[in-house]
């Protein structure tokens, strides 16, 4: 399956292991990635807060570039925040023909010949796994089931709310997909309080204490539930949960040691890649339990 691939900014900045592991996992899933190297930042909701039309136009440009990728059935992202911010812009663009024409008129000035046509399909990797590849096919591709690996799902706000904009309904219970994927990979889903909560990242510069208290609380809850690791489809959540974990531990006043994996890293482990190929050692909280688990499974007699 060929997709117009939007990696986002953070996966190429402070979480390069996410970008790398996606590239490593894609061929194992039969996904051909055509990176949208010319597209700009989605604005992460901050540009929309500053000026909604600016965010809409920047994303319309990204959508238009995605529509130019020949043979691509859809646009795929690997960031909950990109998904949410882009869905918000797309809702405004697709819902109003006059407004879209005005935005396209701006695009005609910035990139002559470029225009966004309503109705692009833009899916996070998580949605693509369940809705395009399918869980049965995913199971078929697993070569190293995550047996006995206890994984806590952490979605990130932008990919679960608001449910009507994200088309989360009985037919597409997208707020259950992470649990389904963990199970399909053979892992054990850990039920803990933080699954649908906020990592706190958006206010880290405005109220650091409250921000880190959010991250610390969820990490502590996952530890109490005896998870081996968390899995996140959002690199911004990863920054607060992993990079900031030592500081979060200070705020919640208890030692924390909870590895946090990006979704493609968890997939990669089950699809047979080695921890090193997935850059697991690049995390601030070294996922020792996960690496040991991978070693034990590989080393075990067949």
């Amino acid at each position: 399956m060929k997709v117009a691939y939007w990696p986002g900014c953070v996966s190429r900045g402070f979480t390069p292991e996410l970008h790398g592991s996606m590239a490593a996992v894609a061929p194992l899933l039969g996904i051909e990635l055509v990176p949208l190297d010319r597209a700009s930042c989605c604005g992460a909701g901050v540009i929309a807060e500053h000026n909604p039309e600016l965010a809409d136009t920047l994303n319309a440009r990204t959508f238009a570039l995605a529509q130019q990728v020949e043979g691509a059935s859809l646009m795929m992202n690997i960031c909950s925040t990109c998904q949410g911010a882009q869905s918000e812009c797309q809702e405004r663009l697709d819902g109003d023909d006059d407004y879209r024409a005005r935005v396209n008129a701006t695009l005609a000035r910035s990139d002559p010949g470029l225009s966004y046509e309503a109705g692009l399909t833009n899916k996070n990797l998580l949605w693509l796994l369940v809705e395009e590849i399918g869980l049965e096919e995913l199971k078929r591709r697993v070569v190293r089931p995550l047996t006995n690996l206890r994984v806590g799902p952490f979605y990130g706000c932008y990919i679960v709310r608001p449910h009507d904009r994200l088309a989360i309904d009985d037919e597409h219970p997208r707020d259950r997909y992470l649990q389904w994927v963990i199970e399909a990979l053979g892992g054990t889903v850990i039920d803990y309080a933080g699954t649908y909560k906020c990592c706190g990242f958006p206010i880290v510069t405005m109220n650091k204490k409250a921000s880190l208290k959010q991250a610390g609380t969820h990490l502590a809850d996952a530890m109490d539930a005896e998870a081996d690791c968390l899995v996140v489809p959002c690199p911004l959540c990863h920054l607060n949960l992993d990079l900031q974990q030592p500081l979060a531990a200070r705020v919640v006043d208890r030692p924390l040691s909870m590895p946090v994996l990006h979704l493609p890293q968890l997939l990669g482990l089950a699809l047979g890649l080695e921890p090193k190929q997935l850059s697991l050692s690049k995390h601030v909280v070294k996922p020792t339990a996960v690496i040991d688990w991978a070693g034990a499974v590989v080393g075990a007699p067949a």
């Binding site: 949410g84 706000c157 709310r161 206010i203």
Partner: peptide
Amino acid sequence: IYDCTHCFA
């Protein structure tokens, strides 16, 4: 207003 984490809850 800057304490809102933009979580949509």
